[in-house]
């Protein structure tokens, strides 16, 4: 298990957003978080790379361990954590720079200066994100000239450029058309051979299609965490059954 979450509670001031979450996330696989709006799935995802730290009033209890190390310990630097845990958001958010500079941004920040090294990283990352063939001749063009789906793959390439072990995807296809969504889904399946992917999705069928494990959240609690095929064919908890069959509420 690459991530172990134990007795995790999270409060936004008075609001108890995550309640006693215990969860193990296996390495090199896709784990999907599903649940209705406000159930805590995105909050938990953001907890995994400490994106909640800057939100005023957030208080966290319990433990989140990345390969045995508590990511909330004072000894662990957030920059180090973010290097190991990359993130892709709902809206593609490339920097107003060239395609090349978007991907090279992270490595440069981490001290890679040599052009040949940067070239190699940019090519490798764009290839991994299944974007290389589409952009290899226009690397100097603005990232904003790409389509939404391409921009999102560019963001994935940018995240991969710093060679993280874990990739967090927060509804990363919800702003995309079906074809681009399919591309990202296929890419996710390929990436999980080398990366651990944790994704939040509102699209249950997407979770069913591409994840190995699915976790169903409700009111800040984990209701059920199981092998995806099991969860979608024969869930144990009636609330899971009601939610995935669209009879919840």
């Amino acid at each position: 298990m690459i991530i172990e979450i134990e007795k995790l509670h999270l409060f936004y001031t008075e609001f108890h957003a995550l309640k006693d979450v215990n969860l193990s996330i296996p390495e090199k696989s896709v784990t999907a978080f599903i649940g209705p709006s406000g159930c805590g799935k995105s909050t938990l995802l953001r907890t995994l790379n400490r994106m909640n730290d800057t939100i005023p009033g957030v208080r966290i209890e319990g433990k989140v361990e990345l390969q045995g190390k508590d990511i909330y310990s004072s000894e662990l630097e957030v920059e180090y954590l973010r290097k190991r845990v990359g993130m892709v958001f709902q809206q593609p958010n490339p920097f107003p720079k060239s395609i090349y500079d978007n991907v090279a941004y992270g490595p440069r920040l981490h001290g890679v200066g040599k052009k040949s090294e940067l070239d190699a990283i940019v090519e490798k990352s764009l290839r991994s994100a299944s974007l290389w063939n589409e952009v290899k001749d226009v690397l100097k063009k603005s990232a904003w000239s790409l389509s939404g789906g391409q921009q999102q793959r560019l963001c994935i390439a940018r995240a991969l450029a710093i060679e993280p072990e874990i990739l967090l995807m927060d509804e990363s296809t919800s702003a995309l058309d079906p074809i681009s969504t399919t591309k990202i889904e296929e890419l996710t399946r390929e990436l999980c051979r080398n990366y651990t992917i944790v994704m939040v999705t509102h699209n249950m069928h997407q979770a069913a299609r591409i994840s190995d494990r699915t976790v169903f959240f409700l009111n800040g609690e984990v209701v059920e965490s199981a092998d995806t095929q099991m969860l979608f064919s024969n869930p144990v908890d009636q609330r899971t059954e009601d939610y995935i069959s669209g009879r919840f509420g």
């Binding site: 069928h205 069913a208 979608f232 024969n234 869930p235 059954e241 995935i244 069959s245």
Partner: peptide
């Protein structure tokens, strides 16, 4: 309707 679980 893409039913799952018992509906399927």
């Amino acid at each position: 309707q893409q039913p799952v679980a018992k509906d399927l």
